[in-house]
Amino acid sequence: MARTKTLKARITHLEMTTPPGKPVSMPLGARLAMMRVNSIPLHFYRYLYEQVGRPHHWALRRDCSDAALAEAVHGSTTEIEVLYVDGAPAGFFELDLSRLAGEVEILYFGLMPDFQGRGLARFFLSGAVAAAWAHDPDKVTIHTNTLDSPRALQLYQKMGFAAVSWSEEEVEPWS
């Protein structure tokens, strides 16, 4: 059996230590809604995770058992919101609240490929940042890597995140 070639990812660790000013306005045109999902059905989470994460080879939750996934996404330290565009799911973000009061991590953030390039990312990220700061942490963190959208790092920095460290990891490609 041939071993799958791994991909090398350079990870940029970013943080925001003060809340931003006013939120980004909702883009005109499409009808948008951001909705928090309490007790997300696992099949829906897997759908969102694959649609958003497959192009970027997200790995953490790719092969989780139902029990492990339920523990992770239904826990009291996890908050998930879904962006809908004209009624269709377009992306999601997931907050990790396990290090409160010191930190809230935006663990996952992204849009499905069909909804990228439509001016939604700044608005949606602004919502994720506001949701994180609503828990009154000392800082909000997020990570991106060279397998993510080439515009992700620039967007995070424009929104007020500052790079604080870098690391590298080997990632199994999504088959």
Rank of each mutant, 00 (worst) to 15 (best):
43 H>N: 11
130 A>I: 10
29 G>T: 02
99 R>A: 09
149 S>F: 06
151 R>K: 10
128 A>H: 04
82 V>Y: 05
67 A>V: 14
114 D>N: 14
148 D>E: 08
128 A>E: 02
149 S>T: 10
91 G>K: 07
114 D>W: 05
58 W>K: 02
84 Y>A: 01
59 A>N: 13
50 E>L: 05
28 L>E: 15
134 A>W: 05
143 H>F: 10
43 H>Q: 13
58 W>S: 06
102 G>V: 14
101 A>W: 08
152 A>N: 06
61 R>Q: 12
166 W>G: 08
76 S>W: 00
68 A>W: 01
16 M>W: 06
51 Q>I: 12
17 T>R: 07
151 R>E: 11
67 A>E: 15
79 E>C: 09
25 S>I: 08
91 G>L: 03
79 E>G: 02
73 V>M: 00
73 V>H: 00
171 V>K: 03
102 G>W: 09
42 L>H: 04
26 M>D: 09
58 W>C: 01
103 E>Q: 11
10 R>G: 07
15 E>S: 04
142 I>R: 02
100 L>F: 06
110 G>Q: 04
111 L>K: 04
144 T>Q: 03
15 E>C: 07
81 E>L: 08
47 Y>Q: 12
80 I>N: 00
20 P>K: 00
66 D>Y: 06
35 M>V: 15
27 P>M: 00
148 D>K: 03
113 P>K: 05
131 A>D: 10
147 L>V: 13
77 T>C: 01
84 Y>G: 10
116 Q>W: 04
118 R>D: 13
37 V>A: 05
111 L>A: 04
126 S>C: 07
172 E>Y: 12
65 S>W: 01
129 V>A: 03
99 R>I: 07
92 F>G: 00
77 T>V: 07
36 R>Q: 07
148 D>Q: 05
151 R>W: 09
166 W>F: 15
57 H>Q: 04
139 K>G: 09
76 S>T: 15
57 H>V: 10
128 A>C: 06
3 R>L: 12
23 P>H: 02
75 G>W: 00
98 S>V: 11
8 K>W: 03
66 D>L: 10
48 L>P: 00
52 V>S: 07
146 T>Q: 01
12 T>L: 12
21 G>W: 02
46 R>Y: 00
42 L>A: 01
143 H>T: 14
59 A>Y: 14
95 L>F: 03
12 T>I: 15
145 N>W: 08
50 E>I: 10
167 S>G: 14
113 P>Q: 04
63 D>G: 10
20 P>A: 07
156 Y>P: 06
104 V>R: 02
93 F>M: 09
40 I>R: 00
53 G>C: 14
158 K>W: 04
3 R>F: 08
175 S>N: 06
9 A>N: 14
29 G>E: 02
108 Y>A: 01
107 L>H: 12
66 D>H: 04
60 L>Q: 03
56 H>F: 15
103 E>H: 02
44 F>I: 11
39 S>N: 15
19 P>L: 01
155 L>P: 15
11 I>E: 11
112 M>R: 13
64 C>A: 15
